[in-house]
Design a protein around this nucleic acid. Structure first.
Length: 200
DNA sequence: ACGAAGATTGGCT
DNA sequence: GCCAATCTTCGTC
């Protein structure tokens, strides 16, 4: 077990990072409580060229300025007024690329995650979907800008190998405004995992 | 200062 | 399947 090195996040290919994050373990320790699990679904947002990306055309705003930080920090923003969405910022400073974490397989802190989600049973919907997983892990905008080498949030490599044939690529959803970028196959999920959102 | 829209979710038909 | 919830953010007036 080891924490992902900073080098991992400096990768200049955000599509590659999106795939490599599958099988890694994401943890948070919020208010002293440890929760986490294995990443099963991600989406890559390819910076200034990607019409679905908040930083398309290099537009920097109050909300998205974290995307312009050096790789290895968390970009958390509020979506639809109620969901905190977690992204892993990648690449160099001023290159605004990020990977949205969309689902995990819940492993640690199940009781706390159930409590935060108001659920009684551990089932797929506990941590599948970006809004749901943030709620289960206690991720809020307070995490925005934090390093993935901090004591509140980090990612570990537990040497789970996901081979290329076990990665399903599909298009991203909820970005109908993104024109030709709507169809880019930049959503990645682990084949046969029951802990992802429903395949399309 | 105002208003429309959003990288979603869950409940109801 | 459809639609409301909910509020910050950003573009425009």
């Amino acid at each position: 077990m080891k924490i992902l090195p900073l080098n991992f996040y400096l990768n200049k290919d955000v599509i590659d990072v999106g795939q490599k994050l599958l099988g890694k373990y994401l943890f948070t320790k919020i208010d002293g409580v440890l929760t986490g699990g294995m990443i099963t679904e991600t989406e890559s947002y390819k910076g200034i060229e990607d019409k679905a990306c908040h930083a398309y055309m290099g537009k920097k705003t109050n909300r998205n300025e974290t995307m312009f930080e050096v790789g290895g920090v968390a970009y958390v923003y509020l979506c639809y007024g109620m969901h905190s969405l977690l992204n892993v910022v990648t690449n160099q400073k001023e290159v605004p690329e990020a990977v949205l974490i969309r689902a995990i397989e819940p492993i640690v802190g199940l009781d706390e995650m159930l409590k935060r989600r108001n659920k009684l049973k551990v089932e797929r919907t506990l941590t599948s979907g970006p809004g749901s997983l943030s709620k289960a892990l206690g991720i809020t905008k307070k995490i925005n800008g934090k390093s993935f080498e901090s004591k509140n949030i980090w990612i570990e490599d537990r040497e789970v190998e996901i081979s290329e044939k076990d990665i399903i690529c599909s298009k991203r959803v909820g970005i109908d405004y993104a024109e030709e970028y709507v169809n880019k196959p930049w959503r990645f999920r682990i084949k046969n995992s029951k802990w992802t959102s429903v395949a399309k």
